[in-house]
């Protein structure tokens, strides 16, 4: 573990030292050298995730595949999402949109002397036990993710965005990144605010994000096995998450409103949204308008979902006007 950690630090340092910092100096942005390290690390995280998917998750999917897929095109679109998101779009969003927003919020509160206590200030023992601190952050982060996910399903305008993720009929390890850009922005802002509120120690942030992303990727895997009836209560496995992607039917109209947890199924168990019946189900959505996403490429999906979002917001306003009139 220490070897991997050192390897990561060396690679990060070398990229900054030999590539990024000289470039920033050349284009006159040296003042911002403190900030660019985080962006470089996000790209590294994305590259690592892609490498793990290619070298570990995909061979597992090929060896123990669950469903047989006839059309490779929608999967290729998901690959495009993953490459774009992890190597460019997400780091850019975080660096250009999220960090400035978060900094502004933090600066405003700090200037007025308002500073939230960190977790290790509240419980000093955690400050001396990095692993325990990591687990606390991990649980808090995942808990926040659970409730965000429930809102994605409960709010019509947010479902209009998030339904793109569910429209895939061939769910596999690449599907995790199939999201509308605006959905990604909202998700990053949500999680960043949570990170501020709980005061995630920056040194642990990388591990937190990497662990979460890898587990989320694998939970989408098209495989015919889970982690067993004990471990699948501890960590979300492909069986558990496949139920969340299940195609709704007259018998189970809200089956996709179950199993929201991204990493720790305890939240679904606690809030009574867990389903552990191990039934194989087809994936996708029962709304033909949303299902039509599968015929589109990356750009087509972004446009179509943008329109869907507009329609959902318009419908919400219309409903409000109607209820006021009556």
């Amino acid at each position: 573990m220490q070897y991997l950690s050192n390897l990561w630090a060396d690679a990060h340092g070398a990229i900054l030292e030999y590539l990024v910092q000289p470039l920033m100096f050349r284009i006159g942005l040296t003042t911002y050298y403190e900030d660019v390290g985080a962006a470089v690390e996000l790209v590294m995280l994305g590259a690592t995730q892609i490498l793990v998917i290619l070298c570990v998750f995909r061979p597992i999917e090929r060896g123990w595949s669950g469903e047989r897929w006839s059309d490779p095109r929608p999967v290729r679109v998901d690959v495009t999402y993953t490459l774009l998101n992890q190597l460019g779009l997400l780091p850019l969003l975080v660096f250009v949109v999220m960090l400035p927003l978060v900094d502004e919020l933090l600066d405003m509160t700090r200037l007025h002397g308002f500073v939230l206590p960190t977790v290790e200030q509240l419980v000093p023992w955690l400050g001396r036990n990095p692993l325990a601190l990591f687990l606390v952050y991990f649980a808090a982060y995942d808990f926040a993710g659970y409730w965000m996910h429930r809102l994605q399903h409960a709010l019509p305008w947010w479902w209009a965005l998030h339904s793109l993720h569910h429209s895939q009929r061939q769910v596999g390890v690449w599907t995790d990144n199939r999201n509308h850009v605006f959905d990604d922005i909202l998700r990053e802002i949500w999680l960043a605010v949570v990170a501020i509120l709980i005061g995630v120690e920056p040194g642990q942030y990388v591990g937190l994000i990497l662990a979460t992303r890898l587990i989320e990727s694998f939970s989408h895997a098209n495989v015919r096995f889970g982690f067993g009836r004990v471990f699948d209560k501890i960590v979300v496995d492909p069986w558990f998450h496949r139920t969340h992607h299940a195609l709704a039917s007259p018998a189970e109209p809200h089956i996709h409103d179950r199993n929201f947890s991204a990493v720790l199924p305890i939240w679904d168990i606690l809030f009574r949204t867990a389903v552990y019946d191990y039934k194989p189900r087809p994936t996708g959505v029962d709304d033909p308008g949303v299902d039509a996403d599968n015929a589109l490429g990356w750009w087509g999906q972004q446009v179509a979902v943008g329109k869907r979002l507009g329609a959902a917001i318009a419908a919400t306003f219309a409903r409000q006007r109607t209820s006021r009139a009556t």
């Binding site: 390290g37 960190t118 290790e120 400050g127 001396r128 005061g199 120690e201 920056p202 040194g203």
Partner: peptide
């Protein structure tokens, strides 16, 4: 001071090792 890690390293200069590290504030 490890600015991005919110920690302080105490280094033994003779042995050239970090003897311990503790968390402290932010940045």
């Amino acid at each position: 001071l490890n600015s991005e890690e919110a920690s302080v390293s105490v280094v033994d200069r003779k042995a050239m090792v970090q003897t311990h590290k503790f968390t402290v504030g932010r940045e």
